[in-house]
Design a protein around this nucleic acid. Structure first.
Lengths: 203, 203
DNA sequence: ACTTGCCCGTGACAAATGTCATGCCCACAT
DNA sequence: ATGTGGGCATGACATTTGTCACGGGCAAGT
């Protein structure tokens, strides 16, 4: 019997997936949480074998939760289940020690199989997504460019970013300009959006 | 026996909700589609009593699908089930003839009840969401401001918007400025984002 | 040691974006 | 008919944002 932990901030989706997986004879949902920072404790308490983690969660994102599990409770394997197949996310997830990555577009019938494969110690990654992730490569952004984009993404103007990072406005704009070029964006906010979508602003 | 149609572009979520609702003795999922523009035909073919519609779908959004149903197949009631409780969406959904509005945050146990109430001819709207929607009021944006924001949202610069709408650049920037004031945003792209989140750019 | 390449930082300049005062037109109330 | 208010449109002006050429530091390869 495979013991499952479900983590997703949308209660309805979480409950629905639970009922889907409970139909399987060899699977058992033993815990459900709605926040990333509750995953570790719940996994420990429930002795889960596999944790299904959504990426978008309050408190801590699914990738971070997977990292915690890998470090603190390696007996519990992490399977990331997310809405968007952002290329960079796959890379980050695997680096964080996740055992698998599934997008919510996949047929529901395949989820149980993915869980079984992960429980058996295999890696599970959507092949198309894996290829895309490989092609996209790691973040092309330098450290400063990443810093600046993160700050811009919070909604700060370049002046504010400058004082937050103790830089001159010109420097900030320079990094932004460079980031705009690298992302193919047309302005700073678009660059921040693109970088975020590729997972370049998480680590 | 209540006959259900499920429309959601995420196959996994769709399947999971199907298995959740199939557990109920008086509910039966008779059709599933992944695109908004397939809803009407599927509802007709399957003689569905209630359609569960996600808002974000390719082809046609859930609100549009609800409008089609209301016009062409009024015997099938629409229940919108969506990720975000954008205030304006509730208003739009009800104006489009939907019978209910549920966010994916609600406990999964309540979904079946919502379906039953809708099937019985009642309206179902999350109370907190309804209040927020009422408080937010209708769109404060004028026609031109809406046009301009929609164009900006596609990723056009103000110059491009100007030529698309046959206006001078100054005029476009003027409408934008006004929209920025009304939305409380700090620049054009933020204004577009806020307006979209409130459902002000759909109708 | 020297070159090469990259990241970082800066200021000057150019282009875009946002704000303002102003006028036109239309609907509505006086 | 006559104000009055709002949406629409415009150009001038101020501010913000993006681009460029330049120089310093640092690590890797020669």
């Amino acid at each position: 019997m495979i013991r499952l932990l479900l983590a997703d901030d949308q209660a309805l989706v979480r409950g629905a997936i639970a009922s889907l997986l409970d139909l399987e004879d060899d699977l058992e949902v033993v815990a459900q949480v709605g926040r990333g920072d509750e995953v570790l404790a719940a996994a420990r308490a429930s002795k889960a074998d596999v944790a299904l983690l959504d990426v978008e969660m309050p408190g801590l994102d699914g990738i971070g939760a997977a990292r915690q599990l890998k470090a603190e409770l390696p007996s519990c394997r992490a399977l990331i289940v997310t809405t968007f197949g952002r290329p960079g996310y796959v890379r980050l997830a695997l680096e964080a020690g996740a055992s698998g990555f599934v997008v919510k577009d996949t047929p529901s019938s395949q989820l149980a199989d993915a869980v079984r494969r992960v429980a058996a110690g295999q890696r599970v990654v959507d092949p198309a997504l894996a290829a895309e992730s490989l092609a996209a490569g790691p973040s092309p952004l330098s450290t400063r460019e990443t810093d600046v984009l993160i700050a811009v993404r919070q909604g700060n103007s370049s002046g504010e970013v400058a004082s937050q990072l103790h830089l001159s406005e010109g420097t900030v704009r320079n990094h932004l300009s460079s980031a705009i070029g690298k992302t193919g964006a047309r302005n700073a906010s678009e660059a921040a959006r693109i970088a975020a979508e590729n997972g370049w602003l998480l680590a």
